[in-house]
Write a protein that binds this DNA or RNA. Structure first.
Lengths: 124, 124
DNA sequence: CAAACGTATCAACATTTTTTGATCGGAGAG
DNA sequence: CTCTCCGATCAAAAAATGTTGATACGTTTG
């Protein structure tokens, strides 16, 4: 079943990770450098367990990594993961990866929908 | 309160719209041109009311538009809306819009977090 | 007009996600 | 060793999201 294709999962997970204001705010803070949870806590005024929850979502999506030092956990962005979403977006619009050129031809959807959807008698 | 900033909403809504396999599949089909609901129905093997639901999510996010002709509703992508997500992603990584160059300087987050989060004593 | 069709919408339900408060474990300080 | 701090995890509750089947509405066809 196309829609259940396992290859959907990574993009879906990453887009989902970005679909929450708290998580976008966390990423915006991480943009300026590594943060520990208590940094985020004071910056965002959010409960600790809530931040741990959202950090885990981001981590499971591969958008951040963590590192322990003493009793602190330091989190940082994974820029490459964000870039892979550029590619996913480009596939949706059939543009070339990283928007280097606009060929605008109908092409496969390897990253997003490898074996999916290629409809037969559909659309105009 | 930064996190409740209304300006979060558009990006959050769009990322959320992309965080579902059915909706990604719909967009992938629309990539090749306008579709009516019944096209999507036969291509995806999904129930009609389910597709109407997801199409509304996509429409509310501004990722598709619809147009009525007789008893058909024709949907098409809004490429510009997808492009605005490129900009949002770039803001998260502090890269220049559309990846034209990598200045990598700390800058404001106008699209994503206009008045948000600018933390004081945070991070390394 | 009546029947068939394409689609939106609704209500009920199932599932998933998020929040909250509590507890636990590891690490360092006294 | 004991106390404090940082942060992960858990259970329960709350909220949001997705699915399903039924119904309603406008349009076309006969």
């Amino acid at each position: 079943m196309p829609l259940a294709s396992p290859s959907f999962a990574p993009a879906v997970r990453r887009f989902h990770a970005l679909s929450d204001p708290t998580r976008l705010a966390i990423l915006a803070l991480l943009r300026d450098g590594e943060c520990c949870v208590c940094d985020l806590q004071s910056a965002l005024g959010a409960a600790q367990s809530r931040l741990s929850f959202h950090l885990r979502v981001l981590k499971d999506a591969g958008l951040v990594t963590d590192r322990k030092d003493g009793r602190w956990s330091w989190y940082q962005m994974v820029p490459h993961a964000l870039e892979s979403l550029h590619d996913s977006l480009d596939e949706l619009t059939a543009a070339a990866p990283f928007r280097k050129a606009p060929p605008r031809v109908s092409q496969a959807l390897p990253l997003l929908l490898p074996d999916a959807v290629q409809a037969d008698g559909c659309c105009g």
